[in-house]
Computed example of a mutant assay.
Amino acid sequence: MHTTTHRGGRASGPRDAEAIFAATLGLLAEGGYDALTVEGAAARSGVNKTTIYRWWRSKDELIGAALVDSRLLEPVVPDTGSLEGDLVALARHIIGLLTGEPTRDLVTAVLAAAGHRPELARHAKVFFADRLSKESPVFARAVQRGELAADADPAALMDLLGGAIWFRLVIRSDTMTPDDAAPLVRTLLSGAARSS
């Protein structure tokens, strides 16, 4: 159906979209996927549920729109002057999302539900594609500076970076702080083998 409002001037959503998104993501973080209802999001955001259904046909579609367009998950696109610096900034941002409130519980709830909700899984895929497209200048600048091969795969680099953080925090239940970002990026870019 409709996507959502888009920052930067293109409007394709209700006037109260940000309040609806904040309510949706807040309820999702607090109670998980099953506890979130369109009626609850409408009540918390102060709009009629018909307003929500006019723009988003289902709870999963509403979550998908909120993930992409909410200010809560607005992506960081650093420009530090180097690929390593940019990737460290991106890693710190990911660590923050996966350790901070309420985003930690929100991300966990979405990815847990996406495993058995095909429509939500499609929206999660759109979210990650949107983030990669917004991060693409980081890699384009690195190619222009000669730091990165022209045929390098930005998606693979972000999968390795984000996947390592996700695995450590969510699967192994380890702790991470922003200070862990730089060593992780150095390993990603230089490898772990001893130089000869």
Results as ranks from 00 to 15, higher is better:
Met1Glu: 10
His2Thr: 13
Gly9His: 13
Arg15Ala: 15
Ile20Thr: 10
Phe21Asn: 04
Phe21Leu: 05
Gly26Asn: 13
Leu27Asp: 11
Glu30Ala: 15
Glu30Ser: 15
Gly31Phe: 05
Arg44Cys: 10
Ser45Thr: 00
Ser45Pro: 09
Ser45Lys: 03
Val47Gly: 11
Asn48Gly: 10
Asn48Cys: 14
Ile52Cys: 10
Tyr53Met: 11
Arg54Thr: 14
Trp55Tyr: 15
Trp55Lys: 13
Trp55Ile: 12
Ala65Ile: 14
Arg71Gly: 13
Arg71Tyr: 14
Leu72Ala: 12
Leu72Tyr: 13
Leu73His: 12
Glu74Gln: 12
Pro75Met: 10
Val76Leu: 14
Val76Ala: 07
Pro78Asp: 12
Asp86Tyr: 03
Leu87Pro: 06
Leu87Gly: 08
Leu90Tyr: 03
Leu90Gln: 01
His93Met: 05
Ile94Val: 14
Leu97Ile: 14
Thr99Tyr: 00
Arg104Leu: 01
Arg104Glu: 01
Val107Pro: 00
Ala112Lys: 14
Gly115Arg: 15
His116Cys: 07
Arg117Ile: 11
Arg117His: 08
Ala124His: 10
Lys125Ile: 00
Ala129Tyr: 01
Ala129Asp: 09
Glu135Cys: 07
Phe139Pro: 08
Phe139Val: 02
Ala142Pro: 03
Gln144Ser: 07
Leu148Tyr: 06
Ala149Ser: 03
Ala150Lys: 02
Ala150Leu: 00
Asp151Pro: 02
Asp151Cys: 00
Ala152Gln: 11
Asp153Arg: 05
Pro154Leu: 02
Ala155Asp: 02
Ala156Lys: 04
Leu157Gly: 04
Leu160Lys: 03
Gly163Val: 02
Ile165Gln: 04
Ile165His: 03
Trp166Pro: 12
Asp174Lys: 04
Thr177Ser: 15
Ala181Asp: 02
Ala182Tyr: 03
Ala182His: 06
Pro183Ser: 07
Leu184Trp: 00
Ser190Asp: 14
Gly191His: 01
Ala193Leu: 09
